[in-house]
Design a binder for these strands. Sequence first.
DNA 1: TAAGGTACTTACTTGAAAGTAAGGTTAGAC
DNA 2: GTCTAACCTTACTTTCAAGTAAGTACCTTA
Lengths: 106, 106
Amino acid sequence: MTPLSAASGVENVLRILEGRWKLVILFHLFGGKVLRFSDLERAIPAISQKMLIQQLRQMEADGIVRRIVHHQVPPKVEYCLTDWGQALCPALDALLKWAALREPEA
Amino acid sequence: MTPLSAASGVENVLRILEGRWKLVILFHLFGGKVLRFSDLERAIPAISQKMLIQQLRQMEADGIVRRIVHHQVPPKVEYCLTDWGQALCPALDALLKWAALREPEA
DNA sequence: TAAGGTACTTACTTGAAAGTAAGGTTAGAC
DNA sequence: GTCTAACCTTACTTTCAAGTAAGTACCTTA
């Protein structure tokens, strides 16, 4: 395993997490929660509809979010994490623990 | 711990890793290696001097890289990871393991 | 004296991500 | 008949990281 291959493996992971709003969305869905589009809008007031859907679509394409459409009028669409998405939790925890290791600066 | 505070904790970590070249540099320095500026240039041929130094400076400011200046002519400057920087290794491993969990697509 | 090695700086350009604002579809409620 | 709710789409602008290219300082060696 060369430095470059290891780096690109991690880069692929970061690319999944890197959108401006993805982590916020992720943490709102952690724990098996199922939320409607409008629930997410309300939960994240600063996000625009365009960004919300853009991030959700990317996360869906990346396989961490599942989109459930109920064919109704008015529309009802729900979002939740896939199993793989849920499995991110411990890895993110490892990052937080690492951050906590930092020595307080002088 | 709200979804927003957890997300921003992780965002702070990602900000440290997010530069275009930081992970490559990081993996070149993992394992206690000490490299000169020119060693890194040679190890990462695609990087420009400007980017190399920019990323190194940011990593130094973030506390994951240590810069050692030897006052000589021609100049000699060495870079290595801080203890905290080394401690990133298991956390990045957790991300790689998560990536490996992904089910092969149908 | 001039050529070269090392570690930078500086000025300018480019491109992708994010933000802003407005429009579109559908069907039942009034 | 037009209003509203819910979930988007589209067009345009802004911002910021990254890329390119050239220059600088310093002493040494030929």
